[in-house]
Design a binder for these strands. Structure first.
Lengths: 250, 250
DNA sequence: TAGATTGTTAATCGATTAACAATC
DNA sequence: TAGATTGTTAATCGATTAACAATC
C-alpha cells in the first residue's frame, strides 16, 4: 500500500512514455506472483545514487557524438562500472532498456536527471570568498549540471559590494533573508576552517538543507541535513599509501 | 614465507617500541595455531586506507587538547565511525592499543602517518593555474598533511615567470625535467577539462605516479597509475536526489 | 527467425556488527 | 582485584558477480 503510493508519486515525475511502459509492467505483474526483494523506490542504496551522475555524464557525451542507443556493456566500458551493476542500478527506478538494443540515450539521460532532481535548477549560496570561494563562484560548470550560484557571503567587510560573475558579495547578516528570498536549499562552505562550524549553524538556522563542505574541518549537523565533504587532503593521504607501498618498493 | 617477508618489511618502518611489541606477538603465536584470515599487511581494503586520514585528523585534534590516551569508543564518537570498525582497521597493521586504557594518542597518530607514508614530505606539481589552480597552489593546508607544492605549470605563456607562494609558473615544456629534478611523484590537474587527458598523458610520460584530477572529465590512465577524482559536481548531484526525495516531499 | 541485450535471480564476495575472551 | 577496553571471532548485512530466461 505504502509502496504503491510511493511508486505512483515517483512515476508522476517521469515522462509519459516511460510511465506508460511502467504501467504495462504493473499490469502484467498481476499475473505473476509478486517478487520478494523487488527493488522499489524507497531504500535505494547511497552507492547507487552516487553512480547516477556518472551515467548522466557519459550519456551526455554519447549524445553529443550523435549516438541514439547504448548498451549496458558500452556504458560499462566507458564508466569502468560493470554492466550488471548498471542494469541493476537502473532497475531500482524502472525498466528503461529494450532487450536486443539497449537504452535510448536521450531518454535515459533525461530520466536519470529527473530522478536526481536535476530537471530544474537548484539555487546555491557560497560562503567564504577567499581564493577557493572565488574559484567556486567563478566556475561555469555548475550551470549545465543543474545548479546556479545566486548568492555570495563573506565576513570580510572589504569584500561586501564586490561582484563575482555578476553576483554581489553580501554580509552574513543578509544570510537568512537571502536564503528565504532566493529559495536557497544548497550552500557551499569555503571559509577558513575555524569558521566553518559557525557558518554551518547559521546556514541551517536560515533554512539551508544541503551543505557541501570545502573546508578541512568536519562538521556536526542534525541528521536531517544533507552534508558532504570535499576533502582533497584525505584523498591525497590515502593515495600516498599506495604510492609508498605498491609503487616505490617494487 | 612471502607473508613474513612483507610483515618484516612493514615493521622496519614502525617505531622500535611498536616493533618490540609486535615481535612479542609473533613469539607467542608460535604456541597457538595460526589463525585463518588473520589480517596482514597485504590486501588492506581500500575503504580501510581511506579511513586512516580521518583517524589522523582526530588524533591531531585530540593531541592539541592535551589528551594522551583515547579509546576506540571516543574515537568512534568523534569520527562517526563505529568503534568496532576502528579497532579492526587498526589491527590490519598491528596491535597498537592497550586493554583497559585504549590507544596512546601521539604514538598512534605517528604510526598511522608512517603507515600512510606521511612521515616525510611528498613533492607535488600543479598543472593549470586558473582560479582553481591558484587556490590550490596558495592553499597552506598541504604542508601539515605531508605534501609540498614545488612546481607549477600552465600552457598560457602570459603566466610563465609569475609566482604563486614563491613558486614560479613554468611552461609544460619544463614538465619532464622538473618532475625528475624535483622528484615529483604526485600531480594535481586543474586545467580546463578539455586539456586534462593530454596533461595526464604528459605527466605519466614524465614519471608521475599519482594524479589528483580536479577537472570535470574522467581520465584514462594505465592501471599502475594511482588516480582519484575530486568531483564536486557529482557530489552535488547525488545530494540533490536526497533533497528532492526526502526533504521537499515531506 | 537468429542475434543481441535486458531484467532478474542465485551465488559469491566483502564489509559491518555483535559479542566476548583476553588482558591491561 | 575490579573495571575498562582491546583484539578477534562468528553472525549478519549488503553489494557485486555470474548466469540465463525473457524478449526485443
Amino acid at each position: 500500500m505504502q509502496k504503491i503510493k510511493k511508486k505512483q508519486k515517483f512515476l508522476d515525475i517521469l515522462s509519459q512514455k516511460t510511465k506508460t511502459r511502467f504501467l504495462l509492467k504493473k499490469k502484467s505483474e498481476k499475473e505473476i506472483p509478486k517478487r520478494k526483494n523487488s527493488p522499489l523506490f524507497n531504500h535505494v542504496p547511497e552507492i547507487v545514487i552516487q553512480r547516477l551522475p556518472i551515467y548522466i555524464r557519459i550519456l551526455t557525451k554519447i549524445q553529443k557524438q550523435g549516438k541514439l542507443q547504448i548498451s549496458s556493456n558500452l556504458l560499462g566500458e566507458l564508466s569502468g562500472i560493470s554492466p550488471g551493476i548498471i542494469r541493476k542500478d537502473l532497475n531500482y527506478f524502472g525498466r528503461f532498456g529494450k532487450q536486443g538494443s539497449g537504452y535510448q540515450v536521450i531518454e535515459l539521460k533525461d530520466t536519470l536527471k529527473t530522478i536526481l532532481g536535476l530537471d530544474g535548477t537548484w539555487n546555491v549560496g557560497v560562503i567564504g570568498l577567499g581564493k577557493l570561494g572565488d574559484a567556486i563562484a567563478s566556475y561555469t560548470g555548475f550551470t549545465n549540471a543543474g545548479f546556479r550560484i545566486v548568492a555570495l557571503f563573506d565576513t570580510d567587510e572589504k569584500l561586501h559590494g564586490k561582484k563575482i560573475s555578476r553576483i554581489t558579495i553580501q554580509s552574513l547578516d543578509e544570510l537568512k533573508r537571502s536564503v528565504k528570498t532566493r529559495n536557497i536549499k544548497i550552500a557551499i562552505i569555503s571559509t577558513p576552517s575555524n569558521q566553518s562550524q559557525d557558518v554551518a549553524n547559521r546556514l541551517i538556522d536560515s533554512g539551508v538543507k544541503c551543505i557541501l563542505n570545502y573546508t578541512q574541518s568536519s562538521l556536526k549537523v542534525p541528521k536531517e541535513i544533507i552534508l558532504k565533504h570535499v576533502d582533497p587532503i584525505s584523498t591525497l593521504q590515502s593515495m600516498a599509501f599506495h604510492l609508498k607501498n605498491y609503487h616505490l618498493n617494487k
